[in-house]
Amino acid sequence: MNDSLSATTVRITGHGGDEVEAYVARPDGEQRRGGVVVIHHMPGYDRATKEMVRRFAELGYDAICPNLYTREAPGAAPDDAAAVARANGGVPDDRLVGDVGAAVAYLRALPTSNGRAGAIGHCSGGRQAVLAACHLDLDAAVDCYGAFVTGIVPEGFPLKVVNLVDQLPQLRAPLLGLFGEEDKFPSQEQVAELEQILTEHGKDFEFHSYEGAGHAFFAVDRPSYDVAAANDGWEKITAFYAKHLGA
């Protein structure tokens, strides 16, 4: 396996015709392959997210992460941009769908594209990956502990967010869900609600919950990091995308 890759920053035309910054990583070579849109978490378009983009390129995919905070804080450090976005209530759902749709179009326009593309997100990005899969022509979606896909948003929550219960019947792609049993958002009850809804509507999904793991168990730079859960989660993601996207 050739793990050589290249990475760069590009500009794509996002929701409403806005120019959006994006980070792209691609394997070397001209072989046909699938593409992955990485939806960054609430802390923003940061180093950890870009490392994930490169990891997907190493796995054999063209990968892209749009900077969802380009409009709020162009050129700002990730922490500062995230603070501005949080103060504004987060990324509006329609804008998220538009920006991810633009990223998908970018991947499918590449000469190496096999026409298939998926999305993945963690935390807020997990919810947004499900949202995107309800509205866009995706071939696969991965929700890593996305909060408020189901359940009730607490009163006074700083983000202007609603659950996706009314949109889940529209899910258009196979969904992989990875959750921590000790997580509160989403709780195991909320994961069970999501499973019930998807089952009732005949959706293609695969869920795994990890004993002893809490929120953000993939985050190598946080105390929440859980080695066993993260390693198994990556194995599940790799197999899922190999099946649906074809590296």
Rank of each mutant, 00 (worst) to 15 (best):
Met1His: 14
Asn2Gln: 11
Asn2Phe: 12
Asp3Trp: 12
Asp3Met: 12
Leu5Ala: 14
Ala7Asp: 12
Arg11Met: 10
Gly17Thr: 13
Gly17Asp: 06
Gly17Cys: 10
Glu21Phe: 01
Val24Thr: 04
Val24Asp: 06
Arg26His: 11
Pro27Ile: 11
Gly29Ile: 13
Glu30His: 13
Val36Arg: 01
His41Leu: 15
Gly44His: 08
Asp46Ser: 15
Arg47Asn: 15
Thr49Met: 12
Lys50Thr: 12
Lys50Asp: 10
Gly60Glu: 08
Tyr61Asp: 05
Ile64Gln: 02
Asn67Trp: 01
Leu68Gly: 00
Thr70Leu: 00
Glu72Ala: 05
Pro74Leu: 05
Asp80Thr: 12
Asp80Leu: 08
Ala81Arg: 01
Arg86Tyr: 11
Gly89Ala: 10
Gly90Leu: 03
Gly90Ile: 01
Asp94Phe: 06
Asp94Tyr: 07
Leu96Phe: 02
Val97Ala: 04
Gly98Ile: 03
Gly98Cys: 11
Asp99Tyr: 00
Gly101Leu: 02
Ala102Trp: 02
Val104Ser: 00
Tyr106Glu: 14
Leu107Gln: 01
Arg108Trp: 03
Thr112Phe: 03
Arg116Tyr: 01
Gly118Cys: 05
Ile120Met: 01
Gly125Cys: 02
Gln128Arg: 01
Ala129Lys: 02
Val130Ala: 00
Leu131Arg: 02
His135Asn: 07
Leu136His: 00
Asp139Leu: 02
Asp139Gly: 04
Gly146Trp: 00
Gly146Lys: 01
Ala147Arg: 06
Phe148Ala: 12
Thr150Tyr: 08
Gly151Asn: 12
Val153Pro: 04
Pro154Ile: 06
Leu159Gln: 11
Val162Pro: 09
Asn163Val: 07
Asp166Gly: 15
Asp166Ala: 14
Leu168Gln: 10
Gln170Glu: 15
Leu171Cys: 06
Arg172Lys: 12
Ala173Trp: 00
Ala173Asn: 09
Leu176Thr: 10
Gly177Asn: 13
Leu178Tyr: 04
Gly180Lys: 08
Glu182Met: 10
Asp183Phe: 06
Phe185Pro: 06
Pro186Val: 03
Gln188Cys: 09
Gln188Trp: 03
Glu189Pro: 10
Ala192Phe: 04
Glu195Leu: 08
Glu195Met: 08
Ile197Gln: 12
Leu198Asn: 07
Thr199Leu: 11
Gly202Arg: 09
Lys203Phe: 04
Glu206Gln: 14
Ala213Asp: 03
Phe218Thr: 06
Phe218Met: 13
Ala219Ser: 15
Asp221Leu: 07
Ser224Glu: 12
Ala229Ile: 04
Ala230Arg: 05
Asp232Trp: 01
Lys236Val: 02
Thr238Asn: 04
Ala242His: 03
Lys243Ile: 02
